[in-house]
Amino acid sequence: LVRYRTISKIPQITLNFVDLKGDPFLASPTSDREIIAPKIKERTHNVTEKVTQVLSLGADVLPEYKLQAPRIHRWTILHYSPFKAVWDWLILLLVIYTAVFTPYSAAFLLKETEEGPPATECGYACQPLAVVDLIVDIMFIVDILINFRTTYVNANEEVVSHPGRIAVHYFKGWFLIDMVAAIPFDLLIFGSGSEELIGLLKTARLLRLVRVARKLDRYSEYGAAVLFLLMCTFALIAHWLACIWYAIGNMEQPHMDSRIGWLHNLGDQIGKPYNSSGLGGPSIKDKYVTALYFTFSSLTSVGFGNVSPNTNSEKIFSICVMLIGSLMYASIFGNVSAIIQRLYSGTARYHTQMLRVREFIRFHQIPNPLRQRLEEYFQHAWSYTNGIDMNAVLKGFPECLQADICLHLNRSLLQHCKPFRGATKGCLRALAMKFKTTHAPPGDTLVHAGDLLTALYFISRGSIEILRGDVVVAILGKNDIFGEPLNLYARPGKSNGDVRALTYCDLHKIHR
C-alpha cells in the first residue's frame, strides 16, 4: 500500500512540481520508500527539464536528425535550378540546329562534286560548318556529364541527390541515346576521305529529338503553341524528305545512260545542264529549293507536275512521300480545326451564355430598361472574369491554397485601402477568403433606401454616388468604403439613402 501511494504521487509531482519531503505519510521509514524516492526525484528532475525545454521552444527539443539540413553532394545540380533551365534551352537550340543542318550536310555532301578544292585539302579548321559541328559534339558530351550530376524525382516524389543513384537512373534511361548522339564521328573518321560515311553517321544526332519531343509535351495545353509546333514538325519532315529526294537524284545521276532524272530535267529547265562528264548542272541553292518544293507539294497532295519522278527509285520514294503525307494530314492537320476551336472556345461560351440571357429575357418578357441593365451587367461581368467562376475553380483546392490565391487576387485593395494598413498577414488572409466580388454598370442602383444592410462594401474600381431623395450626399471612388460596420450592432440596419454607380464599378463586399 505504501508503495502504491508513493507511485500514485508521481503525476502530481510531474505537473505541480511538489516535493515529496513535505508529505508526512511518505516520510515513514520503510525500505521500499527509501529505494523508490531517489528514482522519483530523478524522474521528476528529468520531466521538469523536458517541460522547461518545451515551454522555452528551444531548438534542442527536436531530434538531432530533424535539425540537420538535407545534404547535397558537391557538384550536384538541382533539376529545378536556373542554371539547369538555361542549359536545357541551350541544348534545345543545338538539337534544332542539328535537326536542320545534319540531314542537309549528309545529303548535299554525298558524292558532291561542286567546283573547288576537296575538304581534305583545305583542312578541318577552315570549314565553318565542321567547326560548328565540333562545338555541338562537345556541348552534347558536356550535357552527358551534367546529367550524371543532376537530381531527379523518383516514384515516391522524392528528390534524389545521391550521385550513385543518379548515375544508375541515367544509365537506365537516356544515357545510350545521348551517348550515340554525342559521338564525334568527324574526329574519329577525319582524314579518311569518307565524307559520305561521316554525313550518314552524323544523322545519329537526330535521336535527341525524342527527348525534345517529350520536353515539349508540357506545352500541349496551349493551343497556339501546339499549332506552332505542328507546323514546325511538318516543315521539318518536309526538309528531311527534300534532303533524301536530292540524295536519290544525286546518286543516280552519274550512272544513268539517259538523262531522265529530276536533276537533269531541272538543269535543262533553268539552262544549267550537266555536261557529258557529269559536272556542271544547277547550283546547290536551286537543287535544295526545288527538292523542298517537290516534297511540300507531295505532302499537301497538290502535285503540280513541273517536278516529277521519272526513275524507279524516284517513283518509289514519291509513293512513300504520299503515304507520309496522308498520315500527316490525319495526325496534324486533322487537329488544326480542334485547336482553332479551342482557341476561340471563350468567344463561343460568351455567345452561348448571351443567347441564354436573351432567351430568358424573351421568355419572361423583361421590360426594355431592365433588359438593357441585365445585358450590360452580363457584358461587364464577362469582360472582368472571362466567364470563369472563381468560386467553382477554387473549390477543388485546399483552404490554405485558397487563402493564398484570394490574398493575391485582392492584393491591390488590401495594400491601398486604409482600414487594412497594419493588419497582420493572417488577418488579411482571413479577410480575403470572405470577400465576394460584384460588378455594376453605370446607372445601376446597388442599394435602395430602406434596404437591409448586411454587408460592408469596398470599391475596387469606378465611382458611385450616394443620394437622399434627389440630393447627392457624397461621391465615392476607388478604395472608399460604404455599408454597415460589421458586428457593431446586434441587428442589421437599414439604408438611409440610395447608392448608384456612376461608372463601371468593381466592388468587394463582406457579409455579416
Rank of each mutant, 00 (worst) to 15 (best):
A69S: 07
P70F: 10
I77H: 01
L78D: 05
H79Y: 01
P82E: 03
K84S: 02
K84T: 01
W89F: 02
L92A: 03
V95K: 01
V100C: 01
F101H: 04
Y104A: 01
Y104R: 01
L109V: 04
E112S: 11
G116P: 13
P117E: 05
E121R: 14
G123T: 06
C126N: 01
V131C: 08
D133C: 01
V136G: 08
V136Q: 01
D137W: 01
D137R: 10
I138L: 12
I138Q: 01
M139W: 01
L145Q: 01
A155T: 14
E158A: 13
V160I: 14
H162M: 09
H169I: 04
F171V: 13
F171P: 01
F175K: 01
D178C: 01
A181D: 01
L187I: 14
L188A: 13
F190K: 14
G191Q: 06
S192K: 11
S194M: 13
E195W: 14
L200H: 01
L200C: 12
L201H: 01
A204G: 10
R208V: 09
L209T: 11
V210H: 11
A213N: 04
R214L: 01
R214H: 08
K215P: 01
D217M: 08
Y219W: 05
Y219Q: 08
S220D: 08
E221F: 03
Y222F: 15
A225P: 05
F234N: 01
A238H: 01
H239W: 01
H239Y: 03
W240C: 01
L241P: 01
I248C: 01
G249N: 03
E252M: 01
Q253P: 03
P254M: 14
P254K: 15
P254R: 14
M256L: 15
R259L: 01
I260T: 04
I260H: 15
G261L: 01
W262I: 01
N265K: 14
D268K: 11
G271F: 01
S276N: 04
S276F: 03
S276V: 04
S283Y: 01
K285F: 09
V289P: 01
V289Q: 01
A291I: 01
F296W: 07
L299T: 01
V302E: 01
G305I: 01
N310H: 01
N310K: 02
I324T: 03
I324S: 03
L327A: 03
L327H: 01
M328Q: 01
S331W: 12
F333A: 03
F333V: 04
A338L: 13
Y344I: 01
Y350W: 09
H351P: 03
T352G: 10
T352A: 09
F360Y: 03
Q365K: 12
P367D: 10
L370N: 01
R371H: 04
Q372G: 10
R373P: 01
S383V: 04
S383D: 15
N391F: 10
G396V: 09
P398F: 01
C400R: 07
D404G: 02
I405K: 02
S412A: 09
K418L: 09
P419H: 12
G422N: 15
G422C: 12
T424C: 09
K425A: 09
K425C: 04
L428G: 02
A430T: 12
L431W: 03
A432S: 08
M433Q: 07
K434S: 04
K434D: 01
K436D: 10
T437Q: 09
T438A: 11
P441V: 11
D444Y: 09
D444N: 10
